[in-house]
Nucleic acid binder design. Structure first.
Lengths: 411, 411
DNA sequence: AGCTTTTTTTCGAGACCCGAAAAAAAGAAT
DNA sequence: ATTCTTTTTTTCGGGTCTCGAAAAAAAGCT
């Protein structure tokens, strides 16, 4: 019930954040441009920009001959983020694979590294050790970092300190956050991979994916990242939005999670494979399916009627009813479909739309846009980077500001 | 992408709002108490309180002998909202009924009025005319009002200007907002009844219903009001959260909305009645069922196995899977069940919990709290009143502040 | 070289918050 | 009855921030 009043420092702090945000979004704006974007006066922008430049967060960019239109008047001075202001480590734990990407403050990749590891069989401590090791190696070779984000296929807690559960790791409640913070002495969070995809889409195509949209990851499982009102939607306790485990058919097909009838138990690749091969819907999901095999099933489904086509039909239906239920709660929004599963999207889409049209939320099924992206990894990495960097923006905003105030007190 | 910078006026404006909010929530706090609640300094509170008292928004309350503990020191001066500062008209359109309640700025009822009307058969213009008439009559007798909220069982647009669709009205897209604004010259919004219930619960029991909870209305249809992160959840375009029309069984029982398998088509009173009487699930829902008849069905279900018991079993199951799916998206939260349907909640609850336990979102089904309230109307009216009054708080905050500034300019 | 145009900085004014001190308003102690 | 103690509220001075207007800077145009 206690709400915080706004003090003076906070006003400056927020306006600083606003300026950094404007620069991050628009690349290399001039001070005038920033004033327009933020609605603050030129004098204020001038003052804040001077501070931030002195602090090394931003810098005046070299005038780019091409971009500057030849006009009268004093030329605008482009301002960009200082790539050396900070850097972030983006880790991504996927099935049997760990990757690390080091990015500078502008989001450009400095270096990256990948390593195989048996995610399902590896011990808890070895998993943590391997994570710390790969980040440590990259840092030793290419310089330290000020923040870590670990993206994982799985559920985290809402605070991003713990991996609560993951289909690709046989351990629950792994407190990656504190462990990484201890190892590197910098803030660290664990994030759901689909949430990172959603963040990335927002930077990637802000025109389409702006305030409200859905990102669905189709692979072995079904994941979702949801942006509502311009904010990443999370559960009250967990990373939330476990779309794939909404129940499509009560008592239906067996899901990896142990429950029955989940959307994933119809639309996950293992579920399509199981159905296409005429296996029992209650059969335990097989562990790993080659992408090539899924391609062949899709090809078969395209060619002729039969169990393969029926499998994809049921997958599309499950996704369609699921989206319809989601839209019943939040109203329709643009949908991005990402991942391997998009290879068969031509078969899925008609079924999705047909199912959507049978739900209250999908009344206008025709107007809903679907866009597909087969490769998820770059989105996950970009999303992790932007998550880390926007957090760094705030860190720099407040930390450097308080340093500045102390310095002035001495003087 | 354009975010507003914080200027000085806004800082004051927000802090004023914070003070009003603190007073509204805690009844009659002293200035010291307000400082504690808002985190602002005593000097600031003193200044803001002086302003607001001079403007007539708040007033120093008469010292209440009972409440004041005898202590040393200068006694605290209780500050309360000035009941005469504003007033609001709360309308509620339910099946065959329209009610109007006039409340003062403290939320106390000044007067109320009820009228029968045939909501399903009445013409569009007559409906609007009847709405304006009842509000006008009450105002003529008991004084004008500064804001209107019309609560309706149905879907509104996100802005609250239009009733998009309602099961109790045979007209779609009724722009109540502009029409009422034109008639009375004050701001008017249309709100979903369940959302109003959720707002009311938050004021009613802030301990349990604080940042995250679900309010489910069980009557002819199934409605939901959802609070996430302390904010009323709405769709991106509509009032949203149409829980009752999430699909429970694809292709299943016929729903009032025309689709098949909706939760409502199993758990709405008409659905229970239909199932208990052995009617076909595809049969068109009957229009109206007496409460007494539902009581008898529940009694029958309690007594013996048979279609009545099966009907309630399936209703509970539909609600349980629906809640499970919701929790899969947002994580578990306290649930309040409101309305006539709670009369049979003793039969429904075990089924709800059983179904919940079969979903990913309901893993900890045992820990989820259910609370029932049979009568919805007082909650809807209280929620409407608080919605209108908190909107008025903001109106007064900004309007009076700008008047004050103009006056000072003249002087 | 001077004029025009546009961007950026500087400067003074105004608004607001805060901490400290003062004032106010009690009860308790002498 | 007067003085002391305690607590609340107001007042005052200082500091920070934003803003508008004016000045300065840095071009192109004539």
């Amino acid at each position: 019930m206690t709400a915080a009043g706004i003090r003076h420092e906070e006003m400056r702090s927020r306006n600083r954040a606003l300026v950094i945000g404007a620069v991050r979004r628009s690349g290399q704006p001039s001070r005038t441009e920033i004033a327009r974007l933020t609605g603050l006066s030129h004098s204020t922008i001038s003052a804040i920009a001077a501070d931030l430049i002195e602090e090394g967060v931003m810098q005046e960019a070299a005038p780019q001959g091409a971009a500057a239109p030849v006009r009268r008047g004093r030329p605008q001075v482009a301002i960009g983020l200082n790539p050396a202001a900070a850097s972030a480590m983006c880790l991504y734990l996927s099935f049997n694979n760990m990757s690390a990407v080091l990015v500078d403050y502008c989001g450009r990749v400095i270096a990256s590294k990948t390593r195989k590891l048996q995610t399902l069989s590896i011990g808890r401590d070895e998993l943590v050790a391997a994570t710390i090791e790969i980040a440590g190696e990259l840092a030793a070779q290419h310089g330290a970092f000020m923040r870590v984000v670990l993206a994982v296929q799985g559920i985290t807690n809402a605070e991003g300190t713990e991996l609560l559960w993951s289909p690709i790791v046989s351990h629950a409640h792994v407190p990656f956050g504190p462990l990484l913070e201890e190892a590197f002495g910098v803030p660290a969070t664990v994030q759901n991979d689909c949430n990172m995809i959603a963040v990335a889409l927002r930077w990637h195509n802000p025109k389409l994916y702006r305030d409200n949209f859905v990102a669905i990851l189709l692979s072995r499982g079904i994941g979702m990242g949801l942006v509502l009102d311009g904010k990443l939607f999370t559960g009250t306790r967990s990373s939330g939005g476990e779309f794939g485990h909404m129940v499509h058919r009560p008592g239906g097909a067996l899901c990896r999670c142990g429950n029955r009838g989940c959307i994933e138990a119809y639309a996950g690749s293992y579920a399509i494979w199981r159905r296409a091969h005429g296996r029992d819907a209650a059969e335990k999901p097989v562990d790993d399916i080659e992408a090539e095999e899924m391609h062949q099933l899709a090809e078969l489904a395209r060619r002729q009627e039969g169990p393969a086509r029926q499998a994809f039909r049921e997958a599309g239906e499950a996704l369609g009813f699921g989206l319809g239920n989601l839209f019943t709660l939040i109203d329709p929004a643009p949908v991005a479909i990402i991942g391997q599963g998009t290879a068969a999207f031509d078969i899925l889409e008609p079924q999705i739309r047909r199912a959507l049209a049978q739900t209250a939320g999908g009344q206008h099924a025709g107007t809903i846009s679907f866009e597909t992206q087969p490769i998820a990894r770059p989105f996950i990495q970009h999303g992790s980077a932007m998550t880390a960097l926007t957090a760094l923006d705030k860190d720099l905003c407040t930390r450097l500001q308080s340093e500045r105030m102390e310095k002035e007190q001495v003087a």
